[in-house]
Design a protein around this nucleic acid. Structure first.
Length: 258
DNA sequence: ATGACTTACCCGGTAAGA
């Protein structure tokens, strides 16, 4: 079972790439972020045509998350929106089930500029995520919490960590909250598989970043103990970042035993 | 702590991303 996360940076602009990605890389499950589209306009038909079922939680212009699963799998929605703040209107979390596996798909707030209200929102959101994650990690069922975390966990996860010292994605507060997640019992699957390697999942559109491999690792697949026992392999589909009209993120994936 | 690029909005200039 191949499980992936892919920040598409606008599903309308990315639809051709997304369909090509599904065809060529054939993930069983993929969580999408940054749909930037309302539910009424979500392109469900071409995705179903590509052989996938889909649940989605959209929003006008910004945010938006979805979970796709191949039709041969059972996909159902468990819930949408992160608990803890009824006033929060941003579509950044959807929870589903694919066969026996619980899948949480998240788009964590970027938080820039720092300090400021956006950074405060990020840290509040991470607090809420910690509460939710604490329930999920203990379940007897396999759980994956995947998505764009907007957190560079460690120095090894940035081509030049010094470039990010003023950035919310590399702030002490965000890194500490991410470590708190791991302390709950979550496994950062890609880091577990490749403990020493520089692995990037995002290259910005500026300064020819991808060609220079000036990237950072912010897209993560966290596994609870039940699922981490089943972890086989993983990687980043870097070639997708080199396709025409790419997202600034590349799909990141793992495989687990059935 | 700016600029570059890209996307979405409503139709050229702003907001946001990270």
């Amino acid at each position: 079972m191949k499980i992936a996360t892919y920040n598409v940076n606008g599903i309308t602009a990315r639809l051709p790439s997304l369909l090509r990605y599904l065809e060529e890389k054939s993930p069983d499950v993929v969580g999408l972020q940054e749909l930037k589209i309302v539910d009424e306009k979500f392109p469900a038909l071409p995705i179903i045509g590509a052989g996938y079922n889909v649940i989605f939680h959209g929003q006008k212009s910004w945010n938006g998350v979805a979970i796709l699963a191949k039709k041969e799998h059972e996909l159902s929605e468990v819930g949408r929106g992160l608990p803890g703040d009824p006033e929060d209107v941003q579509s950044r979390f959807i929870e589903g089930r694919v066969n026996d596996i619980r899948v949480g798909c998240l788009y964590l707030p970027n938080g820039n500029p720092m300090p400021g209200p956006k950074f405060d929102y990020k840290m509040t959101w991470m607090d809420r995520l910690l509460t939710k994650a604490e329930e999920l990690v203990k379940l007897d069922e396999p759980v994956v919490l995947l998505g764009d975390y907007n957190v560079i966990p460690e120095n090894i996860d940035a081509y030049r960590p010094d470039r990010y010292v003023f950035d919310a994605v590399f702030s002490l507060e965000a890194k500490e909250a991410y470590q708190e997640l791991l302390q709950q019992g979550w496994t950062d699957s890609i880091r577990q598989l490749f403990p020493e390697e520089k692995i990037f999942t995002y290259w910005d559109y500026f300064r020819n970043s991808f060609a220079r491999d000036a990237g950072i690792r912010m897209d993560h697949l966290l596994l609870n103990p039940v699922l981490s026992k089943r972890l086989q392999t993983g990687g980043v589909d870097r070639d997708v970042r080199g396709w025409e009209k790419p997202s600034d993120h590349a799909p990141t994936w793992i495989t687990v035993n059935d």
